[in-house]
């Protein structure tokens, strides 16, 4: 190859790469995203980098929320049976798939900064405890972190400006920050079309599978709850802020389960309505000792641990 051809080749390649770089979207946009195996591997890795646990203290059974807005009929939560849980980590993978939790880059993984909404701490599944007096919501400058009347500490991703104050004010580090744009890095996979993918610079955490609650509530109100809704229109103001009518026809979230509860082979995670006496959650929690991490025990958590019988 003579000098002339060599220079031509160099020029062509330079121009080609420049043009390729200019096109909208990088190479990664074309990829179909990570495989399920990548998520399984990451869960295994997170479990290998186990974080220390919290000191657990006894708490009373969660009742009606003391803080506004509070629904008189529904307060959703979970109880995790530590006597049954063997720390297999299946809940983490189920949660990742249900909520489209993205993978993280190597540099973040090394620091243990996984996006997993559930993590094992000292072998105990730990997620957002949905405190009714949530410290994270108090410091949110945009109102992105707020409470639903039925006891969920909800996160409005599009409102989040990424100040990370909430994460700093959470003593159990339940909140995960999207340091990177998981979509363009090819780290995100939309397993569940019902849950939106989060953008870079947004805080996220366990939502208590809010999408399942919303879908079930709306389907109930559209069909079975028809009579209740129409009846309440003419009657006195029987509705709470949640729109749930107090009465026989009201929605209590019966039969609903979170993804982690469904995935648990030992049935150690029980999801339910704390204000529904007939729910499995209340029946089981009544005869058990309830615990919560010391840091949030006084904040009236909706998610508690169970250990030993009363």
């Amino acid at each position: 190859m003579d000098r002339r051809e060599f220079l031509k080749l160099c020029m062509t390649m330079a121009a080609g790469f420049t043009l390729f770089g200019c096109r909208s979207g990088g190479l990664t946009d074309k990829l179909s995203g990570p495989a399920l195996k990548d998520f399984e591997d990451e869960v295994r890795r997170a479990m290998a980098q186990m974080k220390p646990g919290f000191r657990l203290v006894k708490v009373p059974m969660p009742g009606e929320m003391k803080f506004s807005p509070a629904d008189r009929e529904n307060r959703f939560g979970m109880a995790i049976d530590l006597d049954a849980c063997d720390g297999c980590g299946k809940c983490i993978l189920a949660c990742n798939q249900e909520n489209n939790v993205p993978l993280v880059s190597e540099s973040l993984a090394k620091q243990g900064r996984f996006m997993h909404w559930i993590e094992l701490r000292d072998g105990i599944p730990t997620m957002c405890f949905h405190c009714s007096d949530a410290p994270c919501e108090k410091v949110c400058p945009t109102g992105a972190a707020n409470h639903t009347p039925d006891g969920l500490s909800a996160m409005m991703y599009k409102r989040c400006a990424g100040s990370r104050f909430c994460g700093a004010n959470c003593s159990v580090q339940a909140r995960k920050f999207n340091y990177e744009d998981a979509r363009s890095l090819g780290h995100a996979k939309q397993f569940n079309p019902q849950v939106p993918l989060r953008d870079k610079g947004v805080m996220e955490k366990c939502s208590l599978c809010i999408q399942r609650l919303q879908n079930d509530r709306m389907n109930f109100k559209a069909n079975a709850g028809l009579a209740g809704v129409v009846g309440a229109k003419s009657g006195p103001a029987g509705g709470t802020m949640g729109g749930t009518m107090v009465g026989k026809n009201s929605w209590r979230g019966k039969g609903l389960q979170t993804a982690c509860a469904m995935a648990c082979p030992k049935h150690a995670i029980i999801f339910g309505n704390w204000l529904d006496e007939s729910s499995d959650l209340v029946k089981e929690a009544k005869v058990r000792n309830l615990y919560a991490p010391e840091g949030i025990a006084k904040l009236d958590p909706s998610v508690v641990y169970m250990r030993g019988r009363r």
């Binding site: 080609g16 043009l19 096109r23 074309k30 363009s184 953008d199």
Partner: peptide, 20 residues
Amino acid sequence: LFGFLLADFLLGEPRVATRA
């Protein structure tokens, strides 16, 4: 080469919007 790249540039899928 430029033909391929130009076609890709013009016809490639648009970048996904990332904000609200």
